[in-house]
Design a protein around this nucleic acid. Structure first.
Lengths: 152, 152
DNA sequence: TATTGTTATACTCTATAACTATA
DNA sequence: TATAGTTATAGAGTATAACAATA
């Protein structure tokens, strides 16, 4: 009998998987063809919150394989939304950062993202949404977003 | 200014997407090759919670396209975990239900799933996990699991 | 020799459209 | 004509392995 274990009748992961799918579909649906896809928005969002970082760090933060990070950044860079530059201290590294255009595009995407959340979480009150957000932040162990280093 | 809108700095969906990815990988990693994959566990879990239902209803509950439901059920049926039978009342319909073997396999999978949750949510207290679960249940608008209509 | 990023490749997940059989 | 399920197919997401450049 595992006393410290999650009760079987209360598994959260299926619910999270479901919400993630709903969210992804809604985001993709709210985006005009050729626009930012779900993954890209999430990557931009992270770069905006945490600032410039290496590809490796980006991949870890996204929980994404390094080889996928390459393709993701290629797409974003083609659109001029991110910039890769060599780290002078270690020329193997690429430092990735948001371009000014990326910030602008991200802001628009965040508006759409917030609308999608309004739809998906319509059953929750603002307080409950805030509580949910706090729990999720703690779960992923991410630092709180906080004011980001002022770029527009 | 949209006063009823989610604050941009508190978007939950990127966090949910991240947790969903972590969860899926952990589940797949905890499964021996040839074993149940993430999707399949979720489908079995739903059938166990809600009892027999049509493929259409299953697809809606899973937020999955009907064509995907077919493939998913084919896999499960090949392993003898689910059963499809025609609805006598409307012979176009397939009624899907868990087989006894499916119940057994699901129980084992739930143990693994619970372990994965213990890992992913290690930063949360049991009370917080319960609170998270409740919020997620409300968000997906799903009925609480409840005792299922006795099939074995 | 180890590490960062890249390429090539394959497998899974998901959606769309056309088809069948029932209604 | 409409609906439940199926098939075929294509595209997105993700992981693995081998490789290049740099440390």
């Amino acid at each position: 009998m595992e006393s410290t274990r999650t009760t079987f009748e209360r598994l959260s992961m299926p619910l999270i998987a479901h919400l993630a799918r709903l969210g992804r579909r809604a985001v993709d649906a709210s985006t005009e063809p050729g626009g930012l896809r779900h993954r890209q928005v999430i990557a931009l969002n992270l770069l905006s919150e945490r600032g410039a970082m290496s590809q490796q760090a980006l991949g870890e933060s996204l929980g994404l394989d390094p080889s996928n990070v390459v393709g993701l950044l290629n797409e974003l860079e083609e659109c001029g939304l991110t910039i890769r530059r060599r780290d002078p201290a270690d020329r193997r590294r690429h430092i990735v950062e948001l371009s000014p255009g990326g910030e602008t595009v991200l802001k628009a995407a965040q508006v759409r993202l917030a609308r999608v959340e309004d739809t998906i979480f319509h059953a929750l009150s603002p307080e409950e949404r805030a509580a949910l957000y706090e729990l999720l932040v703690r779960a992923v162990g991410a630092d709180r977003p906080g004011p980001r280093p002022q770029c527009d």
